[in-house]
Design a binder for these strands. Structure first.
Lengths: 347, 347
DNA sequence: CCCGCTTATGTGAGCGTTAACAATGTGTGT
DNA sequence: ACACACATTGTTAACGCTCACATAAGCGGG
């Protein structure tokens, strides 16, 4: 009795059925010119008859191209990174590339290094590293690889190709908006100091204040979580909320915590205090009150990252580009004109 | 002048430097026994000297194992799927597997089919499909692959290995909690009808009401978004909120919309109406008021999925298992005892 | 002191594909 | 009718690894 072959069909099988050589099958598969239409049809038919699928390992072995892009991401259960990641994958797939992902829980030179090394074991052709912290960016310099890398949210990583959102611009727009509504100054609850996004927003906030000759009030720090926003707002309340008429919060999650703290302290937004967030998470429009915030185009970040990475792959030129994605202020109901008492700050 | 070899080193290069055969290098790399310690050390040294990295394509070609797992995900910018995905990747990496991801924007038999076919081009060894909608689960039956598949949130997919959260149990617990607080009935704002998670929660809600002999009030439907929760709550308000003392909302995002609508209508939570959500997103604790909700262990879902998939891979047995991950009620401040007027429902 | 047994290493083939080159047919200008 | 270009197909040799097998070396018992 003949042993039934469990093995999936290979090119030679297709070639036999179609009555051609395996090389012709290869040509059909790769869309080479100079294959007669009827030959092509016969091969095509044989492929479907056998349910043939090309062996990607063999192909990768000989072409030295795996068609896989590695993505090292962080905080992927947060809205921003998750959206960026999805967009990266989408753009990569459209370009015919696979995405192999490593999702980091903590981001240190150590973990970034390990992630890149891990992906290096698989034959990725290039990397996208979402490196929102300074330490992560620094660790990029000494990576054990010569593969092209695009850094997302990597701020001013010298010598690297970087895609980032115009944090400073968005923050300045938010701050200016509050100033233009008549607030004499704007407080800021920032994200963690080692986060480049946090620093960019702080810088934008400072810039907008400086434009008006306003000395920035003391900076408050959170860790992006609603909890930390809540605590920062408590501090504000305790040190005298009368002094505060407008707050620019580093992200929407912290803004939610702020809202909660103000609600508990019977401080009305925007009647008593105006608030602007950052991110424009889907929930922001349904906070109480709906939050004025800064929209980030995460989708564009993902698309541009892939685009730059593919450019690098094609050109093999090491020209490090810096791409900045603009933001947009989304006005809702958390900003109002300053309360009379708040106008007399200098009392 | 000798042309410098740009090619990365291969096993033969390592072998030459270490003074052994390529096969011995292979043995060291794969941790085979019967290699003398000093030989092993020499090979190890040569590997490091040359910065050798094994060519995974060549290895995959001959072993017929790529070490890559495919994940088809949906709604990856939402908290639940994003958390599950991260957990899947983590568990896979710990087991030494790579994760290739496809993130779907719309989930139809068509897109699921395409995603699986796409991943099939890469030589994935198995799939995890996050298929939260009935139509997606149905489309799984006729997939063009014989590879092992684990379905996440696939409800009662017959013949498939499924990991899902105990939606009905969680919903019943939420409903019972409201009933035990003294509410005579509980309204429900459900997710979309074709979502298995939504249906599971509806079923649990009905069960808990039936236990007390309570006829379920009319079911309201949303689409998981805060917007839809807002509109459902508006309906409730317009048709007479006096009839309503407790609402179980299909997820936290919709609950936020409900909160917003109630806030606008000057309906206090939990004073006038009690509310329970589902998911326990990080923001839920900072809603106004902090939301009582049902916690889902997304991390466990991811871990169990990988575990089952690896079992399948090892056993090649087609024994379809169904794993259910328990939930937990998280009590915060959105539930209270019923208002006196609400007790006289039959008025 | 040789036999068999174990341990340590080397040799050769083959995985399924693409690239380079060879070989065949097909038509065109002279 | 002949040479030459060109379109179409086939043949052969890598790619870098693991597997199966062959071989050499070490070691205790008769």
């Amino acid at each position: 009795m003949v042993q039934a072959e469990a093995r999936p069909p290979v090119m030679a099988d297709v070639a036999r059925v179609a009555g051609v050589s395996h090389q012709t099958v290869s040509r059909v598969l790769n869309g080479h010119p100079n294959v007669r239409p009827d030959t092509q049809a016969r091969v095509q038919a044989a492929i479907e008859e056998l349910g043939y699928q090309r062996n990607s390992s063999a192909r990768a072995l000989v072409t030295r191209r795996s068609g896989v892009l590695g993505v090292v991401a962080f905080g992927t259960n947060l809205y921003g990174p998750a959206s960026t990641l999805a967009s990266i994958e989408h753009a990569a797939r459209e370009a015919g590339y696979f995405v192999s992902m490593v999702s980091l829980r903590t981001i240190t030179p150590q973990t970034v290094h390990e992630a890149v090394e891990f992906l290096g074991q698989q034959a990725v052709e290039g990397f996208i590293v979402i490196a929102p912290q300074r330490s992560a960016v620094d660790s990029l310099a000494q990576l054990p690889t010569s593969l092209p890398i695009v850094v997302v949210e990597g701020g001013d990583a010298p010598g690297h190709t970087v895609v980032c959102v115009d944090q400073a611009g968005g923050a300045a727009a938010a701050t200016r908006h509050l100033l233009e509504m008549g607030h004499t100054t704007v407080w800021h609850i920032a994200g963690p100091a080692d986060w480049l996004e946090a620093e960019g927003r702080v810088a934008g906030w400072r810039t907008a204040l400086a434009e008006r000759g306003v000395t920035p009030p003391p900076l408050l720090r959170g860790d992006w979580s609603p909890r930390s926003g809540y605590h920062a707002a408590r501090q504000l309340v305790e040190r005298g909320i009368d002094q505060v008429s407008a707050v620019f919060v580093g992200n929407d999650q912290m803004a939610l915590g702020v809202l909660r703290a103000f609600d508990e302290a019977k401080i009305d937004v925007p009647e008593d205090v105006s608030l602007v967030g950052f991110d424009d998470v889907p929930e922001a429009a349904y906070f109480s009150p709906p939050l004025t915030t800064v929209w980030q185009d995460f989708s564009a970040v993902g698309r541009r990252s892939i685009q730059l990475l593919l450019d690098h792959l094609a050109a093999s030129e090491p020209n490090a580009q810096q791409v900045t994605v603009p933001t947009q202020l989304v006005q809702r109901s958390s900003v109002g004109v300053p309360h009379p008492r708040a106008a007399t700050t200098n009392g």
